[in-house]
Every structure is written in structure tokens, then in C-alpha cells.
Computed example of a mutant assay.
Amino acid sequence: MMRRDQYIILCVEDNPINMALMHHIFKKYPQIRLLKADSAEQAIELLGQDRPDLIIMDIQLPGMDGYEALDYLKSREDTRDIPIVAVSSYAMDSDVARGLQAGFAEYITKPINLKFFLERVKELIKQAAVSREE
């Protein structure tokens, strides 16, 4: 497998504090370029410029929510194979089950367990890179 030296993660988050947290987490990884969008609509626009290896998406967004954005992205041939991780303060078991059933690759609850979050992000990026090269 050829190893790339940079991966793109698109973070869709409308809360500036949560976006700052994502920036803080990923700035420690020079091989990751973080794209930021504060709405699903803005994220969809960005997808026309850069194709991310992974999307991290808040569920509660202004306008189109995370579930609507997931449905839209999974319906498009050019974006359906990008893994999407839900990040949400909806933390009941039923919320997690609904998110996974809807098609999110992972459902992370807030406050974020950083170790688990980073393990899953790394795993999903590797999987996406492998399937893209096949």
C-alpha cells in the first residue's frame, strides 16, 4: 500500500468552541489537513474543491442537520464512500443506535473521549485510503 503524506478531514461544526477543540486536536498531526465548515451547506460547497478522506459532522446544525447531510452525501456517487463520523451531545444508547443505523461510520458522544476518538479517526482514514487505492 502506498502511504500518502497528507490526509484531509472535513469538520462540520457550528459551535466555535467545538471547532476550536477539533483544530487543537488535529494541529498535532502535520499529516492531517483540517477543512472547516460551520454548516452542512458550506461543507457540501467545500466538497467541490477538496475531497476529504473523512468527514466529522455535528448532528445539530443550522439548516440541514447531520442526518439530512448524511443522506445527501450517501446519495451522491462522488461522496458516498467517504466515511462520516457523527459527533453529538445526544448520548443515549438509542441516539447512538439511530446514528449507526442511518449510516454514520461512527457515532461519538460529547464530551469526547479523546483516546477513542483518535483511534477511530485513524482507523477510518486508513480504511478509506485503502479502499480508494483498490
Rank of each mutant, 00 (worst) to 15 (best):
R80A: 14
D58C: 01
D14I: 05
S39V: 06
R80I: 14
E41A: 05
E68S: 15
Q49T: 11
A43L: 09
I44K: 07
G63M: 11
P30G: 06
D81Q: 12
L61F: 08
G63A: 11
Y67A: 09
V85K: 03
D78H: 13
P52T: 03
R51Q: 14
D81M: 14
L46I: 13
G63H: 06
L61I: 07
L34H: 00
A37R: 03
D50R: 09
L73W: 07
L46Q: 07
M57R: 00
Q49F: 10
E41Y: 00
N15R: 06
N15T: 07
R76A: 14
A20F: 13
R76M: 15
D71M: 12
N18A: 12
I25T: 05
K74R: 15
D65A: 08
K27R: 14
S75E: 12
Q31H: 15
R76L: 15
N18W: 07
L70Y: 04
K74Y: 05
L61H: 01
E77T: 13
S88M: 05
Y72M: 10
R76P: 03
H24T: 14
E45G: 05
I25H: 02
A40T: 06
K28W: 03
D65F: 08
P62R: 10
A37P: 01
M64D: 02
M57V: 04
A20Y: 10
F26L: 09
N18C: 09
L54A: 02
S75K: 10
L47V: 09
N18I: 01
I84W: 03
M64F: 05
V87N: 04
T79Q: 07
D53W: 02
I44P: 04
Q31A: 09
A20K: 15
L73P: 04
Q60G: 13
N15C: 13
D58F: 06
M19H: 07
R33H: 10
E41I: 02
I55E: 07
P30I: 11
L73V: 09
I17H: 11
P52D: 08
I84N: 02
G63E: 10
F26H: 08
T79Y: 08
M22K: 03
I25F: 13
K27V: 09
E13M: 05
S88D: 08
P83W: 01
L54G: 00
D14Q: 09
Q42P: 01
L35K: 03
M57P: 01
G66S: 11
S89E: 06
Q49R: 13
D38E: 14
N15E: 13
Q31L: 11
K27H: 12
I84V: 15
F26T: 06
P83M: 09
F26E: 06
P16W: 06
L54S: 00
L47Y: 12
L70R: 01
G66M: 01
Q42H: 14
A86N: 03
M64T: 10
R51K: 15
L46P: 02
P62L: 09
R51H: 09
D50Y: 14
A86K: 00
E13S: 04
L73Y: 04
Q31G: 01
I82N: 02
M64E: 02
A37S: 10
R33A: 11
R80E: 14
E77Y: 08
D50K: 11
R33Q: 13
K36T: 12
Y72V: 08
M57N: 04
A20T: 08
V87H: 00
